[in-house]
Design a protein around this nucleic acid. Sequence first.
RNA 1: CGGGGCGUGGCGCAGUUUGGUAGCGCGGGUGCUUUGGGAGCACUAGGUCGCAGGUUCGAAUCCUGUCGCCCCGACCA
Length: 596
Amino acid sequence: MRVSRLMLVTLRDAPADAEIISHQLLLRGGYIKRVTSGIYAYMPLMWRVLKKITSIVRDEIDSKSGLETLLPQLHPADLWKQSGRWEGYTAGEGIMFHLKDRQGRELGLGPTHEEVITRIAGECIQSYKQLPINIYQIQTKFRDEIRPRFGLMRGREFIMKDGYSFHSSKEDLKATYKDMNDAYKRIFSRCGIKTVAVDADSGAIGGAASQEFMVTANAGEDLILISPDNKYAANQEKAISSPQEPISLEQNEPCLIETIGQSKIEDLCEKQGFHSSQVIKVILLLAIVEDKKEFPLLISIRADQELNETKLTNCISKSLGKNVIQLKRITKEDFNSQGLKDLPLGYLGPDLDDAVLKEALTWEKKFLRYIDKTASNLNCFICGANKLNQHRAFYNWELLNSSKEIVDIRNAKAGDICIHDKNQKLAERRGIEVGHIFQLGQKYSLALESNFTNESGEQQPFWMGCYGIGISRLAQAAVEQSYDQSGIVWPISIAPFEVIIVIANMQDKIQEKLGNDLYISLKSKGIDVLIDDRNERAGVKFKDADLIGIPWRIVVGRDSISGKVELVQRSNGITDLLSIDQLIKKLLTEICSKKR
RNA sequence: CGGGGCGUGGCGCAGUUUGGUAGCGCGGGUGCUUUGGGAGCACUAGGUCGCAGGUUCGAAUCCUGUCGCCCCGACCA
């Protein structure tokens, strides 16, 4: 391709609305154009990058017997109602774009395809003899994100590879899951990006085991916790650890203490001389579940710990058997609008009586009570007395006489002791999720009555797995991991072009001829080559070549008269002056060796 | 959804407080000079200042509404 024909528009300044470096560089290099919030056009250079990535993905998934397909993007609501996800995905903060057609039928724009593929599999697969099946597609997905940001990182329209597998047994599912895990590692390594595999929450997709593949970068939206020996890595949403031991509280007579104006843990500890690990903090939340019922929650947790809302949401879903649509803090205003008397917020104890909810208008009249292990493990503690300006000191659980369900709902954090090895402490990193694999189990096949006949002639729901890669996000993550002062430094396997020929001076006929001959010759050898034939000064062309990040640059300039050209490596600036033969030989070996 | 900020040529911005009918840098076009790290000179095109109302002799500027975009937050009451 000739740069003069490339519709290349580079920017000297980064547009003001781009925050992170990869977003800025993709805009400056003319790779992407924003059309509206969270929605981007992939310009020709970007599309080449995306095609390189998808071809690596196809290659690896196909080698694991993956079947490529293309599923519809418009999904009928009834399908999603059957799986029980329509409400959660459309109501409240739901992320599914949805619409009504001219007949008034409801449709959703696919954010993911479990429903569609599960129904199809149920219709096509009758017998265990047809299993296992591993089917995937690479396609645009739609999600009405609460807050789109960072360019392609969190868009409302993005390209994803999503795959689904169907099995007659859990064991068979595990085998494919492992295959996919291997394939994913190969895919990311071939794309030239460094990833960490972490244990993950399976979230709204549902299911059992799941792993995320994270590109470590400061701009990452996820917090991940890693042990120094690399044997344990998890998303904070899921991570487990041993908290640091509480500072022991000297045993003393249980008593009430006056704590005027000490509704905050910090003030309480400062004024009374306690450590926050000796205090039980009580948090009131409201869970709204899929059938619109509202459950007040009473959470008790050691005050030096943070509540993990993902873990909590999972606990609630498990105990109610219903999906939680929304979780929010209960405020004074919420109490008033329920027609309830004010509570002494900041002075609540784990034994707060359900009677306070008796007059509630729409809430359930009983607290769902969860106690984090850090709180239940305390033998002697401080907690609110359920009266304004009073706390209880040196209390224990027997005295509170409160029913309790003990769960793990705390955030693991850096510095916590690893479960697998007491001598190691978790460290934290930020990560960009580029891949996610799940063992779904039978959640969708049960809901959609998607069955096959097993060896004994019985109807049985499929065991399912699902496997995603954010293709467009991966492309940007690669930039976030590989750039310098001058611009992008693409890994060669996903660079839009492998080589760029820069003709230093277009007026010089010798240079122009040598450059063009070289261009034709490299192209004929199967190298992806770009030639900058613009009538620009050399400096401009060098700047652009660096900005768009082509791995190899050939400069056809003042040495062309002796038949020599310069070869410059984008990643390290190393420059060689070579004859054409030497150049071609070197490029062929370098490029071919790095392709695999 | 809540909070904050911003909409002025393709991009980055000034002008808004104190109304007087629009300016800078980059980019675009033409010509000449230049030609190895975003060249110089000259000429030139391009904006009903997001949109709609209102106030005023007069609005980018003040008022009201509206649309769009960006950032922060869903964080120990």
